[in-house]
Structure formats: C-alpha cells, structure tokens
Design a protein around this nucleic acid. Structure first.
Length: 874
RNA sequence: GGGUUCUUAGCUCAGUUGGCUAGAGCGUCUGCUUGACGUGCAGAAGGUCACAGGUUCGAGUCCUGUAGAACCCA
C-alpha cells in the first residue's frame, strides 16, 4: 500500500469535485458493460423505463438508488451484473406534449399527415428523451449504457407487434363496440387503470319527469343533468311500493319530448335519491348494461371531445358538456321541471394523463381477454416463484388478478405501436400479421395504436435483442418499482413472461416507499412540495442523497421527506471522509508496511475485525432479505460507532506512543480495515468511496473500487473473547466519562482512577488511561474506596475517581441514589419472575438462567452501591 | 361499501419465530478551540408502546373489539 502524498486534505468532503470526475472515469472505462459469459452467473435488472416526457423526481432517486445498490453489490460479489437502462415512448403523454408544442407554433395536428406528425414526435424524443438519463448519471447509476433501449426501437417494436399477432391468432384479442373510459382531451380510450377518482363537490339535481296521459310524475335525481338529453328509460326497483303502479307506463322526457318507458330492475337502490333512476345507456356504464338487459335505445349525445352532437335538440348542440349542463338546468328551471338542487360530494373519474373528467363513451376498441392469461401469472406469485417485498403486496396482486377484466388496448393516437390489422377495402375482411398484406393497395390499416403498457409489458424479455442474450439474462433477477404500477406494469409483465417465455420475468420484486412531504402529502407539481433532486445533489452531494433515501425509507411504508434530512447522508459522508483524512495524515509520517499488517495485534484489533465480520454477515442478510433500510443502518453504526468512535480513538494510543514498528503495524492495519469498509459502503455511496480508495493507494488506470471484490464474511474472525474484553473496556470508559459529565469535571482536568477488580488487564489499562484522560490508574482487588470520590460499577469492577475538593458530594449522592433506584426496580421485576413457579417450570431453561444471572449481577451491584452510598453519608 | 396497511420518546422511524433493564437518528439540555471531523466530541433528560378486553409463566410483539390516519379497488 502506498497512500498518495498529500500536502493538504480538505477538512470537509467536497462532492462536486469527485462526482463528475469519477462518473466520467467509470463511463470512459466502460466498467459496467456486461456481455454473455457462461463462466459467470448473471445478475440482471431492467430499469423501469422512465417516460420520455418525464423529468427526474425524488421517487426516481429512491428507486434508482436501490437498483444501483443491488447491481453494484452483486457486481462486487462476482456476478456478471447487468443493469439495462431504457425509456418508454409514453403514447398519450408524449402525444399531448407534442400536440401542445405544435399548437404553440400555430400548427394543428388535424392538418398534418400521420407521417408528418410522427416526425415531430421523434424530434421531440431526440430533444427531450435523453434528459432523464443525464440526470440519473449525476446520481451515479451503474447502468450498462451500451444496452440502452427504447420501446419503439426497431427490434422492440417488432416484438410488440408479434405479441399482438400471436394473441390475436390464439383468440385472446378481439374487437368490440363497448363502453370505455374516454378521455375527451386526447380523444382516446384509456384503460380502467388509467382512471383515478377524485372527490368533487357537485350537486344532485332533482328533476320531474311527467307520466304520459296523467298528472302523475316521477322524480329522478342525477349528478349529470345534461345527460337527460340522451335518456331512453326510467328505472325503478320492482319491489318499490311507491312506484309499482308506474312500471310499464310512459314518460315524456322534458325538453326533448321523447317518449320513454318506465322499467323495473333490481339494480336500482331504493334508498338512493328518490329511488327512480334516469337511464342514459350511451353515457354511463351501469345504464349501458341496463340498456342491454332491457333492449333500450342507445342514444349517443356527445362528440369525441364531449361536446353535444346532433342527437340533441338544436339549441343544445355544439356545447361543451359543462355548458350543456348549465343550459339544460336553466331550461328545466324555466319549465318548472327542476324541483330542487342539493349539494352533493361524489367521486368523479379523471384521466390520469390529461387530468380531465373521463366520459363513459361507446366506441369500437380492441380488447384483450385476460382471465385465462392471468392464471399462470397469479400462480407464479402465489407459489413463490416470484417473491414480492414486502410480501403483503401479494394480496393486492391476488385480488386484482382474480377479478381481472378485459383490457382495452387500443388508443386513438398516432404515437406508438400501430395495430397490425388491415381491413379489406371491398370485402371488409380482417388481416392480422406482423408484415402488411402484399396487395397493400386493397387494404386499410387500423388507425389506432396500442396502449403503452401493451408494449412495456415485454420489457423484461425483449430488451435483450438476440437469443443468446435473452437465454443468458432472462429471467431477470430483480425488479424495483413503485407499488402504484403493480397492475399497469408488474402484473402485466408477469403475464407476458408466463405466456410468451413460459417463464417468470424476474425472481424478486421490490416495491419502494412512496415519497411524501413532511405533512404526508404526495409530492406534486401543483403543490410545489416536490424538491428538484438535482438541487439536492448540488447542495449535499449524490452520495448524501442516496444514503439518506435508504436510511429514511422504511420497507413497505411511505417515507416523509424533507430537504434537511439529506444532512444525515452529508454528515455521514463527511465522517467517512475524515476518518480517511486521519489515516492519510498519519501516513505522511508513519510508514505503511504491508508486511506488518498482522503484527502487534491486540484485543482491540481482534475486536474490530470481529465487529467487521459480524457487520458483513448482518449486512448481507439484510440485503438478501431486501431490508435495505436495515442494511444502511448497519453500515452507519459500524462506520460511525465502531470504527470512528472506538477503533480510531483506541488506535491513537499506539499511533502516538508506540514503537516505530508498532505505529507502522497499527496504521497499515487500520488503513487496510478502512479500505475494506469503503468497499462495503461503496454500493450505497459510490463517489466518495471511489475518491478515497484512489487516494489511499497507488491505482492503475482503469482500476476502480466498484470492480473490486466485496469483503467476504469469515466466521473464524468472530472473536467473542476480544469482544468481551473490548466491551468491558468500553463500559469502564463510558462509566468514567459519565462521572466526568455528571459531576462537571472539566475535560482539561486529568484524574486518577482506582479500579477495584482482579480482571482488568494491562492492555486495557493502557487504553482506559488514554480514553478518559487519567494520569494514574491503580488496579487492585483489595482497594479501599477513598472518602471523597465518585464511584461506578461495571460488572465485578468498582470504579473510584478520587477528587478531593473537585467533586460535589451532594451531586454524587444523588447520582448514586438514582442508580440504586434504577437497579432496585429492575431487580424487583426479576425477583418477581423467578418467584413465580410457573415461570421457572414453563419458560425455557435458557431464559430462566438469564434471569438468574441478572439477579445475581444486580444484587451484587446493589450491595456495592449501598455501601458506597453509606460511605458518602458519613 | 370491499381490501391492504399503519398508530412506539417533541419529530421521523427500528424493534425478526412472544423472554426488554423498549433502541436509533434528528431536535432539546450540559460541557468541550481533546494533534480526522463543530457536517464534530463527551455526557444527560425524554416512553402506562392509540384505547379496551383476551390468550400466556410472560404481550410493543399473538387474537377480538373501539377510535383515528393513509393507500388501493368498486
């Protein structure tokens, strides 16, 4: 080992210097490219492809940090690690952006041909599609950039089309005229999963519907009065005594004047509203089904943009649905048909993309039959072939999969994978193949494209573009994703995997926490509570942000994030930096000699090595069980508490006072241990660990900590004796420091120490002396307590700090009193337990033994404390 | 309405198959220009584990109920 000669090491770690430099180094040396290598076991992750319209948000930080931790860890463990990056074309979102962009330029999509429009889309993608990866690189992700994919790459596009054709031929895909969720802004169907429900303050309008040929009338209550223009019936519950006599009668629809029947259907809830329901089969899902049951006329009153069409009276035509509502209400009022208006809060479906209320709308769409396809995918998860972390998502998955409904996969858009179906111009015959028909002039291709998720569901299998790769890397190992796309993407990827590959797409799925603000609100642009990760990286450093995210994100729970929390990571990085700085500064004067690395070993060395190996074991267990949060805490506590607070402090004794050879041995060993520690931290904090790793020894061009071997746990290095010996030392030191603190003995004041014990060793005395700033330590099992002294008890050892005149005896008395009280209380509990015969006979022997030992220890301590206390009273 | 999850120190969270003298970080208080670090060091205070029952020798942990919160589905 040959640490660099450093004239000056900054007191604080400066991330911005290190980050750009090392990312470029990794990138230039292509360190994270993976090729098929049969001699190595692959470990594969496919990135959840961000949307090309998307920019980096705090959720991406968590998600990609987790993936990077796993990929870096496995790479260092010797796996052939492959992390495939890529982006998603995002049909609806992108098309909306491009349309808006064109509009600003004064171009109307309608005036463009499909080809012209797609050209604009690709231009847009080239301009903005790569931004998010530039941002992710700032985070330090070790993706294989040579494998970057896009859902509309030629190979991938073809795979999507092949999948459609296969499913069509197998009978899973059909075309139908159905009620769909219509987004009137993008003028496209969307799937059930793309609808979210918002609570909206609205009204319940009570409208009077006259019964033909009588003075009688029915009152219907509705939240959407404008749809009455398309009513074709009124329904009551057949058991409703109030309305039985009206069933079969005819209503004259106000405004429109259409004659519509009163029908009976069990579906109607007698309790809701007035118990009489207007039926608009073309614009409500339940009404549509009722319409089918009763053979009702279906009148569509809206255009594609949800404005009223020619099926309504002339004065109401060409109005936006909300304008139509106002006008209808006004008219009803004028006609005396409006009885009352109530405030009413209800949930309204909105388009997730366009954020406009969706319109239930009848249209011809392509659907996928899901129930049969879902079965193997459900089984794969229930039988544990795919494991979810945390496991409880299995229930949500199961619930959705067992109640799965057919999937509307067509979208009335141009940007995306065009449906490979051609209609014969004369015969109307349908042709569905990957390649167009030979006599293309006689056919017209379906205008629609596929739902984006009907392309990204092949992501795990078709980012691999040749058979060899696919065979080697598939199934992938881990998918890290947000739980809100469990249905959209995770479930469908499993379905696709089982159907097309006859195998699972990934072995483990890690569902991340949802990042919220400190008030528990979701991060959103409109609330302005969403921090820009790039600002955070600039302020605190990428490592700090990465570490903080893992440190604060509990498994399976939402995380409450605020910018100041990143200080946790920044401070931790600084701690690591300064421990390194300490060793490097000493290396300027003390020779590093690898031959001495195993010389002058004492119990503190064996202790830190033991602790390190325990840490390795705990760390690996946490990573293997996907408890990343726990893993980060294990790291934190080893680095900060064990290594810095104790080991570095202990080492000073020998570093400053040892022989030249001892100094050399101690520093060499400490640097070695520090280097191993850096490797363990590296997957979490890649930049700082690389920066220091490059400083502590001479490295060749192309070498990197990121491709070093991860330290291996060695059970033989677990050393209970050294742990015991160091633990005893730590307890004594802490007890003395406690006395100093509690009795306000200034740190500048050196003390003498008397230890009444037969168990304290010479080795321990040396360290105690340096850690508590003692001039003299006397150890003797027959010591007599000096009168004016402070005391403490650690196991069998009594500690006395004689400080005539310097300690306040009243304070000391209170301190001992408190200690007596605390131990008495604990002792009481133990005694109570042990005097319970049931406990002694039924509890495991081991537990009983432990309680007995406690009793002995505490009784012992109490006896000593009481004697000390009596002594103080004199 | 159905499902899932949560409620532990002022705040954010750990607490594995019940054995606990209930932990950590932040914040608070006291002291510290200690030859790595004030982004730090040393010490301290702070909790009838939401509430009520039950199972058990033993419950923060298991069961039932109540109250409150969040998310998903309809």
């Amino acid at each position: 080992m040959k640490p660099k000669n450093l004239s000056e090491i900054p007191k604080a770690y400066n991330p911005s210097d290190a980050e750009g430099k090392w990312y470029k180094y990794w990138y230039d040396h292509n360190l994270y490219h993976s090729e098929v290598d049969e001699t190595k076991v692959p470990y594969t992750i496919v990135i959840p492809p961000p949307n090309i319209t998307g920019i980096l948000h705090i959720g991406h930080i968590l998600n990609n940090t987790l993936q990077d931790i796993y990929i870096r860890y496995k790479r260092m463990m010797g796996f052939n690690a492959c992390w495939v990056p890529g982006i998603d074309h995002a049909s609806i979102a992108t098309e909306a952006k491009v349309v808006a962009m064109l509009k600003e330029k004064g171009i109307n999509k309608k005036d463009l041909t499909r080809e012209e429009f797609l050209k604009y889309c690709y231009e847009w993608k080239d301009k903005y599609g790569g931004i998010i990866f530039e941002q992710l690189r700032k985070l330090g992700v070790s993706c294989d950039w040579q494998r970057e994919r896009f859902t509309m790459d030629e190979h991938y596009y073809r795979k999507v089309i092949e999948a459609f054709v296969k499913l069509y031929k197998e009978g899973y895909i059909y075309r139908g005229y159905r009620m769909v969720n219509w987004d009137p802004a993008s003028k496209s169907a969307i799937s059930d999963e793309e609808v979210f429900y918002k609570e909206v303050k609205g009204n319940l309008w009570h409208i009077k519907y006259p019964v033909k040929g009588t003075d009688d009338f029915l009152i219907v209550a509705t939240t959407r009065p404008e749809t009455m223009l398309g009513d074709t019936a009124v329904t009551v519950n057949p058991n409703d005594e109030r309305y039985k006599h009206l069933i079969g009668k005819t209503i004259i629809l106000p405004i429109v004047g259409r004659e519509i029947p009163v029908i009976a259907d069990e579906f109607v809830d007698m309790e809701f509203g007035t118990g009489a329901v207007k039926v608009t089969p073309a614009h409500d899902v339940n009404d549509y089904e009722m319409g089918l049951r009763h053979n009702l006329q279906i009148i569509n009153i809206f255009n594609e943009d949800a404005s009223t069409n020619e099926n309504v009276p002339e004065e109401f035509r060409n109005l936006d649905r909300y304008d139509a509502r106002k006008k209808v209400v006004k008219k009803l009022e004028k006609l005396g048909a409006l009885l009352k208006v109530e405030d009413y809060t209800h949930k309204v479906g909105y388009s997730q993309r366009g954020n406009v209320p969706i319109e239930p709308y009848l249209s011809e769409q392509w659907f996928m039959k899901m129930d049969e396809l879902a079965k193997p995918a459900l089984e794969a998860v229930l039988k544990g072939k795919i494991k979810f972390h945390p496991e409880h998502w299995v229930k949500t998955y199961e619930h959705w999969m067992t109640n799965i409904r057919d999937w509307c996969i067509s979208r009335q858009l141009w940007w995306g994978h065009r449906i490979p179906v051609w209609y014969h111009k004369k015969t109307g015959e349908i042709y569905c193949e990957v390649d167009p028909p030979a006599d293309i002039e006689n056919w017209t291709q379906d205008e629609d494209v596929l739902d984006t998720w009907a392309s990204s569901w092949l992501w795990a299998q078709d980012v691999f573009t040749n058979e060899l790769d696919q065979k080697y890397y598939y199934p992938t190992d881990l998918l890290v994703t947000a739980p809100d796309i469990i249905f959209f993407w995770v479930a469908r990827m499993i379905i696709a995997g089982m159907h097309f590959m006859n195998d699972i797409p990934f072995k483990d799925v890690y569902f991340t926490s949802t990042v919220r603000d400190t008030q528990g609100r979701k991060m959103s642009k409109s609330l302005g509570n969403s921090p820009d990760p790039l600002d955070l990286i600039e302020e605190y450093g990428a490592d700090a942000l990465r570490f903080t995210m893992t440190y604060i994100s509990p498994l399976g729970q939402d995380v409450h994030f605020s910018n100041e929390m990143v200080e946790i990571g920044r401070n931790f990085a600084n701690k690591i930096w300064n421990a390194g700085r300490f060793l490097l500064m000493n290396a300027q004067n003390i020779e590093i000699n690898p031959e001495l690395a195993d010389k002058h070993i004492d119990f503190t060395d064996r202790w830190i090595i033991s602790r390190f190996n325990r840490t390795l074991k705990e760390f690996a267990d946490a990573i293997d069980t996907f408890e990343v949060n726990a893993a980060s805490k294990i790291l934190y506590s080893y680095v900060w508490n064990d290594f810095c607070d104790w080991y570095v402090e202990l080492s000073k004794e020998r570093l400053y006072k040892g022989s030249e050879e001892e100094k050399s041995a101690v520093l060499t060993r400490a640097l070695k241990l520090y280097e191993e520690m850096l490797k363990v931290v590296h997957p979490f904090m890649p930049f700082i660990t690389e920066e220091i790793w490059q400083l502590i020894d001479e490295r060749k061009e192309g070498e990197s900590i990121s491709i070093e071997n991860f330290p291996e746990y060695d059970a033989n290095r677990i050393d209970p004796d050294a742990e015991e010996e160091t633990g005893f030392l730590q307890e004594i030191v802490t007890a003395v420091r406690n006395i100093r603190g509690e009795l306000s003995i200034p740190p500048s004041k050196n003390i003498n120490l008397l230890l009444k014990s037969s168990e304290v060793t010479e080795g321990q005395i040396r360290y105690i002396k340096s850690l508590v700033k003692a001039d003299k330590i006397e150890v003797n099992k027959n010591l007599v307590k000096p009168k004016a002294s402070a005391s403490s008890i650690v196991k069998s050892c009594e500690i006395f700090v004689p400080l005539e005149g310097l300690i306040d005896l009243d304070k000391e008395r209170v301190r001992i009193e408190k200690e007596i009280e605390r131990i008495s209380k604990s002792l009481e509990g133990v005694k109570k337990k042990l005097s319970n015969e049931n406990f002694v006979s039924k509890a495991p022997a081991e537990v009983v033994e432990r309680e007995k030992a406690k009793q002995k220890d505490w009784e012992n301590a109490l006896e000593k404390l009481e004697s000390i206390y009596n002594d103080l009273k004199e």
